[in-house]
Amino acid sequence: MTDNNDYLLRTENLFKWFPTRIGILSRTVAYVKAVDGVSIGIRRGETFGLVGESGCGKTTLGRTLMRLTEPSKGSVAFEGTMISALKGSRLKPFRRKMQVVFQDPYASLDPRQSIGSALLEPMKIHRIASTKSEAKKMAGELLEKVGLNTDHLARFPHEFSGGQRQRIAIAIALAVKPSFIVLDEPTSALDVSVQAQILRLLRNLQQELDLTFLFISHNLAVIRQMCDRTAVMYLGRIVEFAETKKLFENPKHPYTKALLSSVPVPDPSKRRELGVLQGNIPSPVAIPSGCRFRTRCPYATEKCLNLPPPLIEVERGHWIECHYDIDFAAASKVEIRPRAT
């Protein structure tokens, strides 16, 4: 959002609309607006959090960043190169630098491929090891790096537990020596005790290998624990963005506030200013006019109905998309100030 050469990956006004086709001639009648104009910048070496309810488009954003799906509009730049415009073999060098770890550790490994062969495959694709024995040695080292051992190379995915499989998925992602990894809900399918181990592993790997993470999750506690900066996504757009600490201590957007207040707090004396979110998230096919959050916002006004909210920097590095400057911090009383525009 500010210009900075430190950005490893930047998106500029990124859109991903899925057409809904019907009829004899397959005419397009509507779009599922999964990503609806997103501009973010991920700094080298940081963990960038992306949080939101299910169906808000965060996974699609991750997939679009990775070029697993074509963006409808807008651009993605990786290390200064517009990868959103690249195709086929010219994209391949970037595939090596960007990797992804998915939520479901059971389905993200080929059930008929041994762990060893799965680890060797990316090396084969990108010609990383010069000889086969070297590749095998590297595969063994990767497994040790994620807390498994070389004996496991000969095993098949069904012989492992969920946490072990997620470790394997991480090892495979690391096999091509990437600089950027999209972690798409990497722990939400795991037991809580295992979650902590995986998160610790990820943090250690990040330090050791100088990795940059995009951490996608709906779990606020995990985001708070892992991320340097966090963006909150609602119906395809980033509605609030700040350093994680600031965001959690002083949320500015009513949606973020509502999300945070839905997390149980250890100290019951801390009052919740905003109740649980009313209603369901609207369909991404029919996004409300004006401010997309207005249907669920307790403070919505006439203005919210008609005008899309502007993006403003409320504090340094703290951006929101809202017509009003809502101060939730003003002790127990919500103060809504119309903003001078």
Binding site: M66, L68, R95, V100, F102, A107, D110, P111, E121
Partner: peptide, 26 residues
């Protein structure tokens, strides 16, 4: 539609490798 296919694509594997090396075998 299984996630491992998506992972292979992200890895940079080509269509032939994914289709005939993984999907068909499974």
């Amino acid at each position: 539609e299984k996630p491992y296919v998506e992972r292979l694509r992200a890895m940079g594997a080509g269509g032939i490798r994914i289709l005939y090396g993984h999907i068909v075998q499974n």
